[in-house]
């Protein structure tokens, strides 16, 4: 891969790790779910950069789409904020 793609994927990986850290620290579970969707979407782009388009499509459709929807439905049925 070209050096430009490598730097792009470095930026994407940093974005992914930041998103994961946001999931850890936030108290609002809705924010956590949306941030985990961001992590999954960035992961799909990384799969595409690693020449795995099949996996990228699956990850984008499932990880960023369906899983997020399921989590949001569960939050609606339970509670939105994390208590200590």
């Amino acid at each position: 891969m070209a050096p430009f793609v490598l730097y792009l994927s470095l930026a994407l990986a940093i974005l992914m790790i930041v998103g994961a850290i946001v999931v850890v620290v936030t108290k609002d579970l809705l924010v956590a779910v949306i941030a985990s969707a961001v992590v999954d979407l960035v992961l799909a782009i990384l799969f595409y950069i690693l020449q795995a388009p099949d996996v990228a499509i699956t990850q984008a459709a499932i990880g960023a789409g369906l899983t997020t929807a399921i989590f949001v439905v569960v939050l609606r049925k339970t509670e939105r904020f994390e208590d200590d």
């Binding site: 099949d54 990228a56 499509i57 699956t58 459709a61 499932i62 369906l66 929807a69």
Partner: peptide, 17 residues
């Protein structure tokens, strides 16, 4: 092309969602 039964099925399910 990239894709296949698993993502295709999930895309249909997200339409129903």
């Amino acid at each position: 092309t990239p894709g296949g039964g698993f993502p295709g099925g999930v895309i249909i399910a997200s339409g129903f969602l």
